[in-house]
């Protein structure tokens, strides 16, 4: 396959960025999208140019490090996968592919296609945990948990923190991310204990960090590589509102 790539290049957080056009040739359809970028970078290095910076790590769709807005879609045109799992067979020979970084005020560009997602860490630090110290906990089977609850908790816990939800949302809202954590812990008896505190603290931090307001478009769910449902957002709303009304 021969492809034309329009890639956002930006020297650093403060610099002004612009699209650059590149061409890659003889790409096998079995190549992954990031391998295609590896090939481009290798070519650029040999041509004495600066390679494109992009975040990536595990390349099996679980670490959440890779990002990229490809032809208008977070993680590219395929559904329920991350960019690293996207393969070139999803494109056609001769295609032009536009590659942009996540665009969200809370995710400033660091360089080229890499953005700063530390805001997500900060939200989790505000309350995305169960306050237990190491040791001194009851036996693992001491509290039976209905399978359906454990499964639903796991559905939400599948979040990889990649940022696609906020990057996709027209409002730059991080609600799906926050909801996934709140909901996952809210479905477990261990997590219920400080459920109210958690929901309030995480939402407050999310608002403070400049994420937008959810307007229930569902775009986050559609682009989430783990297909996390906005039903978790409903649960977060419930958790938050009932906590506030009890205040």
């Amino acid at each position: 396959m021969n492809l034309t790539l329009k890639i956002w290049r930006q020297k650093n957080a403060k610099a002004k960025g612009a699209f650059e056009t590149y061409h890659v040739e003889n790409i096998s359809p079995d190549t992954s999208f990031l391998e295609m970028l590896d090939i481009l970078n290798n070519n650029l290095i040999h041509e004495g140019k600066e390679p494109v910076v992009f975040d990536h790590d595990c390349r099996e769709g679980i670490c959440g490090m890779c990002s990229l807005h490809i032809n208008g879609h977070a993680h590219g045109p395929d559904s329920e996968i991350t960019t690293c799992q996207l393969h070139m067979r999803k494109f056609n020979d001769g295609d032009t592919i536009v590659i942009e970084p996540w665009r969200s005020a809370a995710f400033p560009v660091i360089k080229d296609l890499a953005v700063d997602r530390s805001a997500y860490d900060k939200i989790l630090q505000a309350g995305g945990f169960i306050s237990v110290n190491t040791g001194g906990v009851p036996d693992a089977n001491a509290i039976p948990i209905p399978k359906a609850d454990a499964d639903e908790s796991m559905d939400a816990a599948a979040c990889i923190g990649c940022g696609a939800c906020a990057a996709t949302c027209k409002n730059g809202s991080a609600m799906l991310f926050v909801a996934a954590r709140v909901s996952s812990l809210a479905k477990l008896p261990q997590g219920r204990v400080e459920g109210a505190r958690r929901a309030k603290a995480m939402v407050a931090k999310m608002d403070e960090l400049g994420f937008g307001n959810c307007t229930n478009t569902g775009a986050c769910e559609a682009e989430c590589p783990k297909a996390i449902s906005i039903a978790h957002i409903a649960r977060l709303n419930r958790e938050f509102l009932s906590a506030k009304f009890k205040d």
Binding site: F129, I130, V132, T134, G135, V137, P138, D139, A140, I143, P144, I145, P146, K147, A150, D151, S153, M154, A157, S184, L185, K187, L188, Q190, G191
Partner: peptide, 14 residues
């Protein structure tokens, strides 16, 4: 295992 369950790790259940 006890620790992880207390932390809210959603292990598979019967």
């Amino acid at each position: 295992i006890d620790q992880c369950v207390a932390q809210g790790v959603p292990f598979a259940r019967e």
